[in-house]
Structures are given as C-alpha cells and as structure tokens.
C-alpha cells in the first residue's frame, strides 16, 4: 500500500498542511461563536423554567447529544436547503463551509447550553439573594454577581468542548472541505505517502490541542483569582493523590459532567 516509508516526508508535509490550518481554526472559531449564541438561547428557557420552550430546548439538546456529529453533518448538508426551500429561501448555492459551521455551531450549542446551565446552577443561591438584598436588579445581579462566578466554573468544561470541537472538525472533509484532514488525504493520495501524511496531521492536531488547552488553563486561573483555594478534604471526594492545584467542590461538580455524549431526555 503506497510508497515505502520515508521520514523526511513528515517534515515536508508540515508547511503544506499548515496552509490549511487557518480554515480549520476558522471552522472552530465560527462554530464556537454560533455555539455560544445557540447555547445561551437554549439554556435560558431551562434556567427560567419557561413552559413550552423548555421542552423544545430539552429535545434540541437531546438530539444533538444523542446522534453522531457525522450524521448531523450529512443531515444538515442535504436537509437544510430542502427545509428552507419550503419557506421560500434558496441556499442550495451556499458554500459548504456555511453548512459545516452551522452544524458544528448547533452541535456545540447543545453541549454549551448544558455547561451554561450547570455552571449557573453551581453558583450559590445566597449570592443572588445577597445581590437583591443590597438592591441590585435582576439583570445587575446576573451580570455582576452570577455571571463572573459561573464563567470561572464553566471554563474547564468549556475547554473540553472546544478541544472536542477541534477534533470534530476533522470530519468536515466528508463534505469536501479542504481543511487539515482533507489536505492530508489529498497529499497522501498524490505522493502515496499516506502514513507520513497522517503522522504529520496527527502531530499538528496534537500541538494545537496542547496550545489551546494551555491557553484555556491560563484563562481559568485568571478567572479564579477571586477564589481562595479550598481544601477538598472530607467526604467521598477526598483524593488519595495530590492534585496539581487545590480545586473547589463546585468545580469538581462541574467537572464531573464534562464528558461528551449522552442524550439525557
């Protein structure tokens, strides 16, 4: 299968693959922006217990967490133009990238809405009561008291979602988008050095993941400045081995729900 293994190709493929890095990051950034927006919209009815909308957002989250992203990609690529055609909008000429970002955005939105909900719930109820007690309005209490604390709790889970999204973008090649994976496949097919192409592809993904993880860790530390390290002694959550940094109980709760997957209807 293919030409004999040649280590030098791994390095030769790097610059060629890096040309498409921008597209991969564009998909990640675009979907993240769409996802944060969608996540908020979907989380609100569930946080404020709006009767009918609550049910809708439950079904939305359940669907996007309960079906593979690959199926969702195809579903939107083939389905969205037909559904919008019923409403008289023609998007069959829209670029593939548009469908890719929409799908990843809606998918990320489902995961983020759960994160947003969990981290807002994680903020102590007494905090809001205290805010009301000093005369803040509902909006003020949210934006000044709840939001900054919830953000800090959400960052670890958010960072998991971002990394999962980065890895999921490798599926965009199935719709013919020339991002990192698509480019690696083309290079492999051109030179018949498939293994080398995929090794350099994997290395690039690895480096981006590590960098993103490090950046988000910094953001988390910055957001948690207000919080004194809380010892996690006592109860079932005591750990036998020392963690790199003492973490609050609230964060452990938020972390526990970090995995991707699951429909929860």
């Amino acid at each position: 299968m293919g030409a004999p293994f040649d280590l030098s190709f791994i390095f030769r493929f790097f610059p060629k693959l890096l040309d498409t890095l921008g597209l991969t990051l564009l998909i990640v950034a675009g979907s993240l922006a769409a996802g944060i927006f969608a996540g908020f919209l979907v989380a609100l009815p569930r946080m404020y217990n709006v009767p009918v909308l609550k049910r809708f957002s439950q079904v939305y989250v359940s669907f996007f967490r309960g079906t593979p992203i690959l199926i969702q990609l195809f579903l939107f690529y083939y389905g969205l133009p037909e559904i919008l055609k019923l409403a008289g909008i023609d998007i069959s000429k829209a670029p593939v990238l548009f469908f890719v970002i929409i799908t990843y955005g809606l998918n990320t939105g489902a995961f983020l809405s759960e994160t947003i909900r969990a981290s807002v719930t994680a903020v102590n109820r007494g905090q809001i009561e205290a805010a009301y007690a000093v005369g803040m309005t509902g909006y003020q209490a949210f934006s000044r008291i709840v939001w900054p604390q919830a953000l800090a709790v959400a960052v670890p889970v958010f960072s998991n979602v971002v990394l999962a999204l980065l890895k999921d973008t490798s599926l965009a090649f199935t719709l013919g988008v020339m991002e990192l994976t698509g480019k690696a496949q083309t290079l492999g097919a051109l030179t018949q050095h498939f293994v080398e192409a995929y090794i350099s592809l994997a290395l690039i993904y690895l480096v981006i993941s590590l960098v993103l993880e490090r950046l988000l860790k910094l953001a988390e530390r910055r957001l948690l400045r207000h919080e004194q390290p809380v010892s996690t002694g006592g109860g079932r959550f005591r750990l036998w081995f020392r963690l790199p940094r003492a973490r609050s109980y609230r964060q452990l709760i938020a972390d526990a729900n970090a995995g991707k997957g699951g429909a929860e209807l």
């Binding site: 990394l163 890895k167 994976t181 293994v195 995929y198 090794i199 993904y205």
Partner: peptide, 14 residues
C-alpha cells in the same frame, strides 16, 4: 489530543 479519525487512518495505512 488528536481526532479519532487520524487514529483510524494511521492504523489503516500504517
């Protein structure tokens, strides 16, 4: 740190 797809492709070709 790498997508599942790259593992599959690496195993399949490598």
């Amino acid at each position: 740190g790498t997508p599942m797809l790259t593992h599959l492709l690496l195993i399949y070709f490598g």
